[in-house]
Design a protein around this nucleic acid. Structure first.
Length: 460
RNA sequence: GGUCCCAUCGUCUAACGGUUAGGACAGAUGGUUUUCAAUCAUCUAAUCGGGGUUCGAUUCCCCGUGGGACCGCCA
């Protein structure tokens, strides 16, 4: 059996992390089964659909490595077909025109509320014999007796009484198709075999199933995955903080790390936490998807990111840093590239994100060291004397390496009868502008000799 | 209000009906260290409540409670 999966977002806002995970799961299932993964842009809401969001969706998924097969499908291009199907449904007696106004519907709703009935359209126009001239929407004639059963790959058997499914609109007053129709027709046309989507779509499945049945089409397999909740415990929305991919890119999260985090959100494989791309394709399955919603946890994202920062190839990491700086900070000067690359091995040890690395590398990137007033206080007379002594010896050095540097420092330790901090701190402040930073020898060995001399001479 | 779904440490989760209920993140403590980190070791911490079924229930069933989703001419 071939697997054809899809992800079908609407370009009405930036794609958030929940959608990204849905896309990832679809993609994984397709890859695992050597099938296809399509991206379909559901832009039938002309008012709210924006090209800008379409591009954001495509680039977000691309960044994560979730690449779709073929060119993306644009739903609005297939509208004629959707309408055609709508007309066929009318012909077959599965759809009818409804002339109720918004006011009517409003009224019906308050009535229903009062009587504790479901807020569904009351099917007032369902059995209207003659056609009127006034504007109408086309509604699907839902079943009103019995119940419907859908076997869901994650939820198990879902059973719903048909009476609770309303006669939903499939064609708007302006004759344009709605989601229920378009999505169903497109899924059928694209020969989608598996639909993984958020469980907020569960009721839609029952509506769509009726269209499939009415048209005599084969219904795909469905898997409704639980939603991702924000810290507040509610369905994640585009308005939540740190909800889009861009939010994570901006703070320097690696795509592998985010992919890994998302994979483990709602899915597990034994005790395994870290999955390479290949492993996730091989190991992913719908059986491992749970049925309860999960919360976003920033500290966990950071922790996984830290893991990837420490484990990927340093050249690769440097490349990512360069891209990151160019986009969000400032271009790394080519004269600094070598020294930065050489320093990745220790810079990365103190970093959870690319932004952290950037911060830790400030002493390399900045030519003029600014000592904060607070740290400047630590540079008292004796500290300055130590710096001066160090400088004298350092300038005499013919060969700069860990041993020769250590000798200077050790001599100072005994001369001033102090501990390492007594020597290390003033030097670190003079060289980096901060009392926090990389190990002293890492700093000393990463900077050019002239630069070190220059910086130390600044301290008077 | 109606319909549906969910419930294991704070969080993500593991556990053929039989485990001292496991792992990871976070947190705490200690060791190491050159500051901040990192690292190593140790610790704290959970089966929502009540009934069944069963020799035995985190697991199956019912009720309650709590949380969530949906109820658009949005998708």
């Amino acid at each position: 059996m071939t697997f054809i999966c899809r992800f079908a977002p609407s370009p009405t806002g930036p794609l958030h992390i929940g959608g990204v995970r849905t896309a990832l799961f679809n993609w994984l299932l397709a890859k695992k089964n050597k099938g296809k993964f399509f991206l379909r842009i559901e832009d039938t809401d002309k008012e709210r659909s924006k090209d800008e969001f379409k591009n954001q969706i495509i680039s977000s998924l691309g960044w994560l490595g979730v690449k779709h097969d073929d060119k993306e499908y644009i739903q609005s291009k297939n509208i004629n077909k959707h309408v055609e199907v709508a007309n066929e449904l009318v012909k077959k007696g599965f759809a009818y025109y409804c002339y109720c106004t918004e006011k009517d519907l409003e009224e019906q709703k308050t009535q229903a509320k009062r009587k504790s009935l479901p807020f569904v359209y009351n099917r007032k126009c369902r059995d209207l014999k003659e056609k009127k001239d006034s504007p109408a929407v086309l509604r699907f004639k839902s079943k009103i007796s019995g119940s419907s059963l859908i076997k869901d790959l994650v939820q198990g058997e879902m059973n719903v009484s048909n009476l609770t499914i309303e006669d939903f609109v499939i064609l708007r007053k302006d004759k344009t198709p709605t989601y229920q129709l378009s999505a169903t027709v497109d899924d059928h046309e694209m020969k989608i075999t598996h639909v993984i989507r958020g469980d907020d779509h569960k009721i839609n499945t029952f509506k769509q199933k009726q269209i499939y049945d009415a048209m005599g089409w084969k219904i795909p397999e469905f898997a409704h995955i639980p939603l991702i909740h924000s810290e507040s415990g509610k369905k994640l929305s585009k308005r939540d903080k740190a909800s889009t991919i861009d939010d994570y890119i901006k703070i320097g999260i690696l795509s592998d790390a985010l992919r890994n985090y998302l994979l483990r959100l709602g899915w597990a494989h034994k005790d395994k936490e870290i999955f390479t791309l290949d492993e996730s394709i091989k190991l992913f399955d719908l059986k491992g998807v749970g049925r309860s919603p999960s919360k976003l946890d920033m500290s966990r994202i950071l922790s996984i990111n830290e893991h990837y920062i420490k484990h990927i190839d340093e050249k690769e990491l440097f490349k990512l840093l360069k891209i990151y700086c160019k986009k969000f900070k400032k271009n790394i000067d080519s004269s600094k590239e070598n020294i930065l690359l050489k320093s990745m091995n220790f810079l990365k040890n103190k970093a959870k994100t690319l932004e952290d690395i950037f911060q830790n590398a400030q002493y390399i990137l900045q030519d003029n060291i600014q000592v904060s007033p607070e740290d400047a206080k630590l540079l008292d007379a004796s500290s300055k004397k130590i710096i001066k002594d160090f400088l004298d010896e350092f300038e005499k050095l013919s060969k700069t390496n860990k041993e020769t540097l250590e000798k200077i420092v050790n001599d100072l330790l005994s001369k001033y009868k102090t501990n390492f901090k007594g020597v290390g701190q003033p030097l670190r402040i003079a060289l980096t502008g901060s009392k926090y930073g990389p190990g002293l020898y890492d700093i000393l060995l990463s900077l050019d000799k002239d630069e070190i001399v220059k910086r130390l001479k600044m301290i008077k």
